[in-house]
Design a protein around this nucleic acid. Structure first.
Lengths: 205, 205
DNA sequence: AAGTAGTTTAACTAAATGGTTGAATTGTTT
DNA sequence: AAACAATTCAACCATTTAGTTAAACTACTT
């Protein structure tokens, strides 16, 4: 048997699962070790301590999302196409990592100072080309005047909220997993539609 | 000195603060006692154990929000008025309890089974009158066909997401507290506007 | 095959944490 | 003021948990 070079990776994967599901405080080093099927000491051998291991997981989570969203925002396509692309991205990205969004949000609220620096270092900047694009569309009279950040916030809110609040939605709307899946699927059409056309017909409300 | 009848209440208030800020796993009974300025044993005297105390706090948090939202949804006013009322309610309710929304969401994702029963017992039902109202407005041709639950989800998403993800918004948009406050304020107009009229002018995008 | 560096393990430690106990104190009733 | 119940407290306990250590094992180099 060769020394499975994957040990470090097995640890990381297990840590990702446990941290995202339980949060920093709820995560147990022993559970991570058990899931990775290695001795607990290996965690410290490879990652020194819990803080460190957590931060690797957190960092990887953030890096999996933001750069891709920003890349989409930077493309040379119309606003409405970008909206659709982002909606699709969110819905597929979090299908694989259902706990990721609430994990990031909760941990950031928990310990804001800790991540302020991280975000500044990595300069996750909203692409300038997107901000200007919104302004151009406004000037051209294609969309109503709006702060581009609000425009983006609207899209992200509509996408993320049902994912972040998954169990709240299940309880309130009395859905099972299948109905929830269908509910999300419906939103891939609803969201771009609302963002660009609103709920009203020309007769008004 | 009389026996401050408030002891139980002081404990509850301290527990609310600590649990909402740190979550169940991050909360320390000793910290709650310190903030309440009482002996740690009092926590157990009045609330038996951590689980119990937590549940009281969680329950109170949920009961502070949902009944009021449902009450608004049940009123005999137009859909657009309801929307504005809900937006206003969310923005003022969470100004006082900034951690409440992410607290409830995180804990529900953490331990879904635990709260499933609670939600079923308390029958937080989306008012029928609201669901029918949406359908009536659709039939009358005032709003475009939409699943009423999606309609509600849209409003709640637009309201809650910026509140839940407060520190993410601060980091990504590089805002200070004041700018964030202004950003939220702007949304009180933007949200009903988007829900009912969308971003497009009649020239389209 | 001997030596060496990297890897893995079981056993251990120190600190923290939720919870308990029994005595002391306070307030109320008679 | 004596008796009694409710409340408060300091000291304590059992368990859990992150982290350490030193020995054992593996694979590679010479």
């Amino acid at each position: 048997m060769p020394v499975e070079k994957e040990t470090e990776e097995k640890i990381f994967e297990a840590a990702r699962t446990v941290f995202q599901q339980r949060g920093f405080d709820g995560a147990r080093m022993q559970e991570i070790a058990d899931i990775a099927k290695i001795n607990k000491s290996m965690l410290h051998y490879y990652y020194r301590n819990k803080d460190n291991l957590f931060f690797e997981v957190f960092q990887a989570g953030v890096k999996k999302i933001f750069p891709q969203v920003f890349e989409i925002l930077s493309r040379e396509v119309s606003l409405i196409e970008k909206t659709t692309l982002i909606v699709d991205f969110y819905h597929s990205a979090f299908k694989e990592n259902p706990h990721l969004p609430s994990f990031v949000i909760f941990e950031m609220n928990q310990n804001p100072e800790r991540f302020r620096a991280f975000f500044e270092n990595h300069s996750f900047e909203i692409p300038d080309v997107f901000l200007r694009q919104v302004e151009l569309e406004i000037e051209a009279g294609n969309i109503k005047p709006i702060n581009p950040k609000q425009f983006l916030m609207n899209i992200i809110s509509m996408c993320m909220m049902p994912l972040v609040a998954r169990n709240l939605v299940l309880s309130l709307f009395k859905m099972d997993d299948e109905q929830y899946g269908g509910f999300l699927e419906e939103r891939r059409v609803i969201i771009p539609d609302l963002i660009f056309k609103g709920a009203s017909t020309d007769r008004g409300v």
